[in-house]
Design a protein around this nucleic acid. Structure first.
Lengths: 229, 229
DNA sequence: ACCTGAACACCGTTCAAGT
DNA sequence: ACCTGAACACCGTTCAAGT
C-alpha cells in the first residue's frame, strides 16, 4: 500500500479507491511526451525543491504509471539536465543597435541570474556535466559580445569564465542564503556571541547585508572594469 | 526481507576477505565520537563522492550499529555541514610582514580553492546554510586583509562576496567539469557538429580549455584590478 | 511503440528497548 | 550516557510482461 502516500499527495485526490490510474485531469489524459515530463519536472521542482523530485512522484503527477518515464528518459540525471536547460532559455530582445556592449553584458547576466533565482533549485544544479543548448547559447552570446567589444582573443575564455563564475557564485550563494533568513540572523548572533573572533565581518554585517541585487551589480562592475580597462 | 543487503554488509564480513574498505579495525573498536564521525564522513566522501555517503554506510565503516550515529548527530545534513567545514581549516602561514596585501589575497584564495579541489564533493556542498567556524575564519581574514589594503568600508562586503563568488564559481565549475573529460570532448564535438550555431565559443575552444589554474589566477587578477584600481 | 506492476537493493529517520 | 535492531515510508532502476 505504498501508493497511499503518493496518491494522497497528488492534487485533487478524490478517494482514489480502485481507480486503475492515479488521479489526473478529470478528462483528456495527455500522451506523456518528453516535453510534458520536463514541464512537470520544473513544476515539481518549483513546488517542492530539489529533494521533492522523485521519478515516482513525477510520474504520478503526470498521471502515468510509476515506471513509464523510463521509456522517454534514461534516468533521473537526465530529467535534471533537461529541466535545468529548459529554465535557461534566453529570449534576447530584438536589440537593433549594438551600441553599448557593457550594458548588453550587464543585461544578459542579470537576466541569467534572474532566470535562475526564479527557480532556486537551478542554482545548485547548474555547474553540471551536461551543458544544454540554452546554456551554450547564453555562453555564445556572451562570448560574441565580449569579442566584439574588443576583448583580446587570448583573454576571451578567461573573461567568459570569470563572468560565469560571478553569476554562478552570486546566484548559488543568494539562493541558499535566501532560504534561511532565520539561520542568517542566528549566524550573525553567533558571530556577536563569539565577541571578537570575527570582528571585521561582524562589523561590516556581512551576513546580514541582503542587498543581493546591488552586490551582484557592483561586483559585476568591478569585474568589467578589470576586464576592459 | 529488505534487510538482507544491509545485514550482510554489517556482519563484519568475514568471508569477503578482499574487501578493501568495509573492513574495520580487527581489534580495538574505538568509541565513536563526533570527531570520528566527521573524519569518517570525509574519508567516505573522498572515496565515493556525494552519493556514496549514507548514514548506514558511514556507521558500518566506523564499526558501529546502523543507527548509532543519531546519538551524536541530528541528521545527515549536519554530517555534511561538519564534513565541509572540517575540510576548510586554514593554516595561515606565520606571515610576519603585512607587506603585499594583493599577494596575500591571492594566496588565501588559491589555498581556499585548492582545499576544495582536494575534496571535490565540497564544491557542490559549499554554498550552504551553515557557515562553520573555518569558513567564517577565512571570510574574516579576507575581510581584514582587504580592509587594511584600503578597500572602503562601503565596498567591503561587495568585495568579499565578489571574491567569494569567484572562488565558488571557479571551483564548482572545475570540479564538475573535471569529472568528465569525455563529456567535455563530446560537448565540443557536438558544438562542431552544430556547425555555426555556437561559432564564438567553438573557435575559442571554451569547452576544451583546461588551464583551470591559469584561468582562475587571471580572472582573479582582473577582479582585483577592478576592486582596487 | 508505448506503458505497466512487481521486485530488488537500497535510503533517512523514529522509537522502544537494551546496556 | 550511549548504542541497538526492527520498522516505516520512502527511493532509483530493471525486467518480463502487457497493449
Amino acid at each position: 500500500m505504498t501508493t497511499k502516500g503518493g496518491g494522497a499527495r497528488s492534487k485533487r485526490s478524490k478517494r482514489n479507491g480502485a481507480s486503475p490510474q492515479s488521479v489526473r485531469e478529470p478528462r483528456g489524459e495527455p500522451p506523456l511526451s518528453l516535453e510534458r515530463i520536463v514541464a512537470g519536472a520544473v513544476e515539481l521542482l518549483d513546488a517542492e525543491g530539489l529533494e521533492g523530485l522523485s521519478m515516482r512522484r513525477l510520474a504520478d503527477r503526470l498521471g502515468a504509471g510509476a515506471m513509464s518515464l523510463y521509456w522517454h528518459v534514461a534516468n533521473k540525471e537526465q530529467v535534471f539536465d533537461l529541466a535545468l536547460d529548459s529554465v535557461l532559455e534566453y529570449r534576447a530582445s530584438p536589440h537593433v543597435e549594438p551600441r553599448d556592449w557593457r550594458g548588453d553584458v550587464v543585461h544578459m547576466l542579470e537576466d541569467w541570474r534572474a532566470s535562475m533565482l526564479r527557480h532556486p533549485w537551478s542554482a545548485s544544479l547548474l555547474p553540471r556535466r551536461a551543458l544544454g543548448p540554452n546554456i551554450l547559447a547564453r555562453l555564445e552570446l556572451l562570448g560574441k559580445t565580449l569579442s566584439s567589444a574588443g576583448v583580446a582573443q587570448a583573454d576571451l575564455n578567461v573573461a567568459i569564465w570569470s563572468l560565469w563564475n560571478h553569476v554562478m557564485g552570486a546566484t548559488v550563494t543568494r539562493a541558499s542564503f535566501d532560504l534561511s533568513k532565520d539561520d542568517q540572523a542566528a549566524a550573525q548572533q553567533r558571530l556577536a556571541g563569539l565577541s571578537g573572533r570575527y570582528p571585521t565581518i561582524e562589523s561590516s554585517r556581512l551576513l546580514l547585508d541582503d542587498d543581493w541585487d546591488g552586490a551582484f551589480r557592483k561586483g559585476l562592475d568591478f569585474l568589467l572594469d578589470g576586464l576592459c580597462p
